[in-house]
Design a protein around this nucleic acid. Structure first.
Lengths: 237, 237
DNA sequence: GTCAGCGTATTTGTCGACAATCAGAGCCCC
DNA sequence: GGGGCTCTGATTGTCGACAAATACGCTGAC
């Protein structure tokens, strides 16, 4: 269940957005890579209008940059952008967990625990794709459970951006947060300790950010085309 | 200088978005009003594709809701949506002013003061349109000066929503915050008192929210068409 | 008199073709 | 030999027409 691109009602467009996002976080599509409309059209076996809509959505999400008459590229967020994104996430997510501490039902807690279990399983079997998805989804789940539709939407945007940033600036170390820190956040929520939960969240995000090498810009080179094609072979139709 | 819709590069689309937003906050276009594509096409003397793009942007901003095969209407945010929006603004803007307390230069302060002066002048001469614009812009200016591009983008989204909410739920009293509360926020920033600034911002937003009658839903009826036409006559081409 | 079913008319969604724009190679002039 | 210009190829932006879907009104039966 892709948690991205709930924007569009059209299934094809959602698939395009999702595949591109996946290719980016898996580093098969590098920042700066050009995304020619015609090319995407034949890869996804659709029309150019659809591809265009998808690119527009991805631009809104900050995953690609569109320059007029020049087309779309995978975005290249600067170090400053990276700090911005994490800073914004901090503001949003601290508030979310604090709120959730007051409102969480037993059912909510169970859902979060189940989710972390899934994360752990994916982690154990080394399923990278699932890990990436689930790590993001955990934060989204918190937003959803806290009942704030708008903050969920905002967080979704921010999560996409930090995904890109992580893919761009990560060291060779883990590119996703392990389940343990999520666990500690959940524990704080379960204990209804808003201050602790807020603190754990801050720690978690700080950890994510400092795991990157944001000092030197690694000047990423652009890959192309086969990235998406490979992804498609995994799920042919 | 419309601070909305920097999304698109196309001037026509920006104009459409801006006019519709203006019509909404001035209550000449009521929530629930249908926005037929053909109609907008002839009003703005453009093509349907352009109108469509504009509507897509406005949907992203939360100003209109698009239901598939049914077209676009001015959004009708629920009371819950309203609380969401103000809550999100609180989270964002408290952080923004706190940051600005540390980073504000003399030039920044001067810009803010000039802005408040403009607000006051507009207030004195009873220029409602200018008041609406400037009130929103003040908050955007804080975001811009604090140097966080992403938070600016988010705040822009939230400001548009709260504008709609204000237009929808306002009592007959003032629909914009007077310049005085802005003044107090600025004073706190100038004094480098982050806690006080944060507090003043919270007070200000709380004031805005409680000025609405969010208990009973006033079931707004939809106006139509002449709203935009009237606006156009003001600025013919 | 009321309700179901159908046909039409209006509105949105989609597509293919054309026009505008830009990058780059090749050529000419200096 | 180097720099600037133009022409060409490729790519994006735009438009108008067609197809699909929905809402509304009409007819007819019960």
């Amino acid at each position: 269940m892709p948690w991205l691109s709930q924007s569009s009602t059209n299934e094809v467009i959602n698939r395009i957005c999702d595949k591109i996002w996946l290719a980016v976080v898996q580093r098969t599509l590098r920042p700066g890579a050009r995304l020619k409309e015609e090319e995407l059209t034949e890869i996804f076996a659709t029309t150019r209008a659809r591809v265009r809509q998808a690119l527009l959505i991805l631009e809104q999400d900050g995953l690609v940059t569109i320059t007029p008459n020049r087309g779309a590229c995978i975005a290249e967020p600067s170090v400053e952008d990276a700090h911005d994104a994490f800073s914004a996430r901090l503001a949003i997510e601290q508030r979310l967990v604090s709120r959730l501490c007051q409102t969480a039902s037993a059912e909510d807690i169970r859902l979060l625990r189940d989710h972390i279990d899934q994360e752990r399983k994916a982690h154990e079997r080394g399923d990278n794709e699932a890990m990436i998805r689930l790590s993001g989804e955990f934060h989204m789940l918190i937003a959803k459970l806290s009942g704030a539709g708008l903050l969920l939407k905002i967080l979704r945007m921010l999560t996409i951006r930090t995904s890109l940033i992580t893919a761009m600036y990560q060291t060779q170390a883990t590119q996703t947060c392990g389940p343990d820190e999520h666990d500690r956040i959940l524990a704080a929520i379960e204990a209804r300790d808003a201050q602790s939960a807020s603190h754990e969240m801050a720690h978690h995000l700080h950890h994510l950010e400092t795991a990157l090498r944001l000092s030197d810009t690694p000047i990423p080179v652009s890959g192309l085309h086969e990235a998406l094609a490979t992804n498609l072979r995994k799920r042919p139709s």
